[in-house]
Every structure is written in C-alpha cells, then in structure tokens.
Amino acid sequence: MARLKAGWWPLLLVVVVLVIFSPLASSAPDGLERVAEDLGFAERAVAHLAAPLPDYLWPGVAWEGPATVLAGLAGVAAVLLASWGCARLLVRR
C-alpha cells in the first residue's frame, strides 16, 4: 500500500508552488487542440454547461496571473475534498 509517511505539509507545499507557477504555463494548444485545428474540426467544440471557473480563471479578477492562481487553489481544494470524500465512503471500517 502507498501511504504518507512524513507529514502532509511538504507535499501540500509542492502542490501550492505548482499552482503559483501555473500562470507561466504555455498557452499554446495542447496535443488534441492542435490536431483539431490542423484537421479542421476545432470549431465543433461546444460547451453544454456553465462551469463556474471556465478556463482556470477566477471571474472578475482583472489580472490573468492572480485569476489563474485563485482558480487553481480552488481546484486543489475541490480535488482534496472530493477524493477524501470518495475514499472515506469506500474504505472499510
């Protein structure tokens, strides 16, 4: 089994540092987006949903860097909560 041996904070620190650096990420299309553009089906993409934080940007924050970091931190919190909740439900007592 894989488990946490040291405290939880070093790994959480790594995660927060990754989010802080996320505004530096390449904004070029990813593999699938590039293929869709090259082969002419990119415009077929639609959104069936009004997601609260589209494109990893916190709405209403004028600067893109802080908007991305805020959205990323919210995402990290959501993933932590959701995976903790799912695991909690499944684990044997």
Binding site: W8, V15, S22, A25, S26, W84, L90, V91, R92
Partner: peptide
C-alpha cells in the same frame, strides 16, 4: 482500500490536478 492511504491519495490527486495546469 485502507484508511491510512487516504491522506496520500488526496494529496497526490491534488498534485496531479495542479501539475496538469502546467502546460509545457
């Protein structure tokens, strides 16, 4: 699944989520 796996599962899922934001 074991209870003592849960903290690392959560943290690594968060790590993967954050790392997926970093397009290179």
């Amino acid at each position: 699944m074991e209870e003592r796996e849960i903290p690392l599962m959560g943290l690594l899922a968060a790590f993967v989520f954050a790392a997926q934001m970093l397009n290179f």
